[in-house]
Simulated scan of single mutants.
Amino acid sequence: MIITRDLTKRYGHTTAVREVGLEVREGDRYGLLGPNGSGKTTLIRMLLGLVFATRGEIEVLGLPVPRRVREVLPQVGALVEGPGMYPHLPGRTNLNLFDAAGPGGGRRDRRRRVDQALERVGLAGIDRRPVRAYSLGMRQRLGLAAALLRTPRLLILDEPTNGLDPRGIREIRDLLTELNREGTTVLLSSHLLTEIEAFCSRVGVMDSGRLVLQDDLAALRAPTGRVVLHTPDADRVIALLDGRVEARDGDRLTVRHQAPDDLNAELVGAGVRIVELAGERRSLEQVVLEATTTSSDRVEGATP
Score class of each variant (00 low, 15 high):
111 R>E: 15
248 R>L: 06
214 Q>H: 00
221 R>I: 02
132 R>V: 02
258 Q>P: 13
3 I>N: 04
286 Q>L: 05
162 N>W: 10
293 T>W: 03
246 E>A: 15
143 G>E: 07
140 Q>D: 07
152 P>A: 05
252 R>Q: 14
170 R>T: 13
145 A>L: 12
109 D>R: 15
144 L>K: 11
261 D>H: 12
296 S>E: 15
89 L>R: 12
12 G>Y: 08
184 T>M: 07
240 L>C: 08
230 H>C: 10
116 Q>I: 00
76 V>S: 03
66 P>C: 06
80 V>P: 02
302 A>C: 02
274 I>A: 08
11 Y>T: 11
160 P>E: 09
150 R>T: 09
10 R>H: 14
61 L>R: 05
173 R>V: 10
17 V>C: 09
255 V>H: 01
32 L>F: 05
278 A>S: 13
31 G>V: 03
108 R>A: 15
269 G>E: 11
279 G>R: 09
99 D>H: 15
18 R>D: 13
93 T>D: 15
265 A>S: 15
27 G>K: 00
124 A>H: 10
191 H>K: 07
264 N>T: 15
302 A>K: 06
286 Q>F: 07
145 A>F: 08
197 E>D: 15
59 E>F: 05
180 N>L: 03
32 L>D: 00
173 R>K: 13
138 M>I: 06
214 Q>V: 00
253 L>G: 09
252 R>F: 06
298 R>G: 01
12 G>S: 11
299 V>W: 13
55 R>F: 10
259 A>I: 01
234 A>Q: 09
258 Q>L: 05
111 R>V: 13
46 M>Y: 02
173 R>H: 13
53 A>W: 05
157 L>R: 01
80 V>W: 05
22 L>Q: 02
14 T>E: 14
14 T>M: 13
202 R>Y: 03
223 P>W: 02
274 I>S: 08
54 T>E: 12
134 Y>I: 04
98 F>D: 08
192 L>Y: 11
38 S>T: 04
281 R>S: 11
142 L>G: 04
203 V>T: 03
232 P>G: 09
244 R>D: 03
24 V>N: 01
4 T>I: 01
199 F>N: 06
67 R>F: 06
224 T>A: 05
106 G>N: 15
270 A>D: 12
168 G>Y: 10
269 G>Y: 11
16 A>N: 10
112 R>N: 08
55 R>M: 09
31 G>C: 04
41 T>I: 05
48 L>D: 00
122 G>H: 02
273 R>F: 11
111 R>N: 11
197 E>N: 14
92 R>S: 07
5 R>E: 13
176 L>P: 05
244 R>S: 10
61 L>W: 01
53 A>D: 06
150 R>N: 13
88 H>V: 04
220 L>W: 04
167 R>Y: 10
74 P>Y: 07
258 Q>E: 12
95 L>K: 10
168 G>A: 11
189 S>T: 01
274 I>P: 07
4 T>R: 03
193 L>D: 04
193 L>F: 08
105 G>T: 03
156 I>F: 02
4 T>A: 00
4 T>F: 00
145 A>D: 07
168 G>E: 09
51 V>D: 08
38 S>R: 01
